[in-house]
């Protein structure tokens, strides 16, 4: 049951619903009463995306290339633009990203809503060869009326590394899911995210990492800031299977709720079926520290300046973990823009 199958078949019963435990906070079945018509092809100008790179792959309204392949030993930076330039229609796209042995890729992925109420699913099948390295930065700028799913299934070989940072401002309903098959064997995963939500926006960051072999690491940090009537969802699951000894996994999810009517639902899960592991998780949901705000005001900062500074610093920890310098700069600017807009 996925949104993509529902779009392909026109069958509403294929939509994920709250009866499915993994979708209980992001119900689509209850939201979508009629499946819209298929999105038309688009051959207008989509302008420039947020990231610059030598190579750009563009998918508009579900149409575009189906594969990015980096041959063994090569290193590339690719901007991937997933553009929805359609109102009131639905489409899905599927892309495979393959890295050969020792290949390196920085994938600067943007999801750009250029119209209002589109319904989309984007699937990525990501496969990393031995010792390959992928850093995926995902900037999701959907329209407030959009309903979108981005789903990445990632498979790593021994010694590979996968680093990811998701940055989203949410949508009417939005789920960004990442599922990683972790072989252990020196492979390393970093899965980070930031959701900065206002008005009635919704964002769901869901991750599942399955450690199947010994000596793998996963480091996860997600931060959220929600205000107005927005709703953030974090579901993080790390599974350490029998025999995956020497696994090191840590998961942190921390959210600030800046209004009474905003909501955060979090479900961090560590499912461990072996003994020799080091796992830790932390989950906090709260407000800004009023004592720290007074301290900053005593030094001369007006209240809004103090609040913005502390909120930006809170999210900054995620941004600073981005390795690609250009992307880190763009992420910083995005954070201040999201937190500053509409004050």
């Amino acid at each position: 049951m996925t949104l993509a199958t529902a779009i392909a078949t026109g069958d509403l019963t294929q939509l994920p619903s709250r009866r499915d435990e993994d979708w209980r906070w992001t119900d689509l079945r209850g939201l979508i009463r009629v499946l819209p018509a298929a999105s038309p092809a688009f051959d207008g100008d989509v302008g420039a995306g947020p990231f610059a790179a030598d190579e750009t792959v563009t998918i508009v309204n579900g149409h575009g290339p189906a594969a990015i392949a980096i041959p063994a030993g090569e290193a590339r930076t690719v901007a991937l633009r997933v553009v929805a330039a359609t109102d009131g229609t639905a489409h899905a796209a599927r892309l495979s990203v393959t890295l050969g042995q020792g290949a390196r890729l920085t994938l600067l992925e943007s999801h750009e809503g250029r119209a209002a109420s589109y319904l989309t699913q984007t699937d990525l099948d990501v496969s990393l060869g031995e010792d390959a390295a992928l850093e995926r930065i995902v900037l999701v700028a959907d329209h407030a009326e959009a309903v979108t799913i981005v789903d990445a299934a990632v498979t790593l070989a021994a010694g590979a590394s996968f680093d990811q940072t998701i940055l989203t401002a949410g949508a009417r309903r939005q789920r960004i899911e990442t599922r990683v098959s972790h072989p252990g064997q020196g492979a390393a995963v970093r899965l980070d995210g930031a959701y900065l939500l206002r008005d009635q926006r919704h964002a769901d960051l869901t991750t599942v990492v399955t450690h199947a072999g010994r000596d793998g690491t996963t480091s996860q940090l997600t931060k959220g800031v929600v205000r107005d009537q927005a709703r953030g969802v974090f579901q993080g699951r790390i599974v350490v299977e029998r025999g995956a000894d020497g696994t090191e996994a840590r998961m942190g999810h921390h959210a600030l709720i800046l209004s009474d009517r905003a909501e955060v639902d979090a479900k961090p899960e560590l499912l461990i079926f072996t003994d020799d592991v080091q796992c830790a998780h932390g989950n906090t949901v709260g407000a800004l520290d009023e004592a720290a705000i007074f301290y900053a005001r005593q030094r001369g900062m007006p209240e809004d300046v103090a609040r913005a500074m502390l909120t930006e610093a809170f999210v900054g920890e995620v941004v600073e973990r981005i390795e690609h310098e250009g992307a880190r700069e763009i992420a910083r600017a995005w954070v201040s823009q999201q937190l500053g807009a509409g004050e």
Partner: peptide, 29 residues
């Protein structure tokens, strides 16, 4: 307001100074 008093020149050295995570001292000052 507290910040207006600060701008008038009132400074308090706190008995228990607050920790400001993520903000370098120089940036804060």
């Amino acid at each position: 307001e507290p910040n207006e008093r600060a701008a008038k020149g009132v400074f308090l050295s706190f008995q228990y100074p607050l920790e400001i995570p993520g903000v370098p001292a120089l940036t804060f000052i």
